[in-house]
Design a protein around this nucleic acid. Structure first.
Lengths: 162, 162
DNA sequence: AATCTAAATGCGAATTATTTGCAAATAATT
DNA sequence: AATTATTTGCAAATAATTCGCATTTAGATT
């Protein structure tokens, strides 16, 4: 794991958003950077161990989401997931059987969005969107089982998510 | 409210899916048909009053979702919403301030989907997707307040959803 | 560097959302 | 009408998230 030193990039990101650059927030951002898939509150709570309370994790997630530093991803488990928003715009392809997640990008949603804005009578602005596709991955289509290249953490989460 | 008589359409829909056409299921389907926006479990529990237990509501929602009779909609509240799947394919435009929901259709997502399927190495099939846009509705952009044509039930839900 | 203060955190308890086990009730079949 | 596999109610468990309040801390000020 190594020594945790403070990351000036995260520090200024937080300050620019009007937040104090506390060690809790720095640590949570570091977790997002290290684990590159959408994270649930519980996964973060586990990752940080007893370094902070779960209430702080939830409060931090809310704060980061409010400022658009992270964004919410809907995986249809029954809890929220989040990922860093700085990554290039992308969406997800989620296997309905094993939960494998593939990132997809360059899907051309911008045009859909401008078309919608042209059509709507009631909205003046679109700020966010969520787009996820659910299907069957090839390894599930083939055999029955989970592919072995599914990360352990992902498997653990699948196990614990009902 | 009037007399509730059994609807043969729902009855055969349930039987075709391998379920018994119980009064609970018929009633929940009737609620979906009557209230035409995405419903949370709690809204259904309230609508049916003491006609059935909440466990039955949740079990029914799971069953209907499994067979594709209803589909899950992500409104970023922290509970699930569902709507009848028979309605023409459409998505939602959700106001980040007041929660107003506008249905959008004919958005052209089919092409995105086939493009994605062409590009992915890991998936062989896409079965569902979720696409919601979040923005600011005109009445929120104008004044501060909620537009008066927002339905009471929607307002109630906004009030109670944190 | 010491002081100050609003913002952030820990802790515990409260709420909200959803699920489960099991005995009793019921839809569909015979 | 009798049978049986499903479904339901009830009560309690678990999961997910939030809240109140006393204490701590980051960053500003002196």
């Amino acid at each position: 794991m190594g020594i945790m030193r403070k990351n000036p990039e995260f520090q200024s990101l937080l300050r620019k958003s009007g937040y104090k650059a506390t060690s809790s927030r720095m640590m949570i951002l570091a977790v997002f950077r290290r684990l590159r898939h959408p994270l649930s509150a519980q996964e973060i709570i586990d990752s940080v161990g007893k370094a902070m309370d779960q209430a702080t994790v939830y409060r931090t997630l809310t704060a980061l989401k409010t400022k658009g530093i992270i964004r919410q991803v809907d995986l249809r488990h029954n809890h929220a997931h989040f990922e860093l928003a700085n990554a290039k715009e992308h969406h997800h392809l989620i296997c309905l059987r094993c939960g494998r997640i593939e990132d997809i990008s360059g899907c051309g949603i911008e045009e859909l969005q401008s078309g919608i804005l042209r059509k709507t009578k009631h909205f003046s602005e679109i700020r966010q969107h969520s787009l996820e596709f659910y299907g069957i991955c090839k390894s599930c289509a083939r055999g029955g089982g989970m592919s072995s290249d599914l990360h352990a953490s992902r498997i653990a989460e699948l196990y614990h998510s009902r």
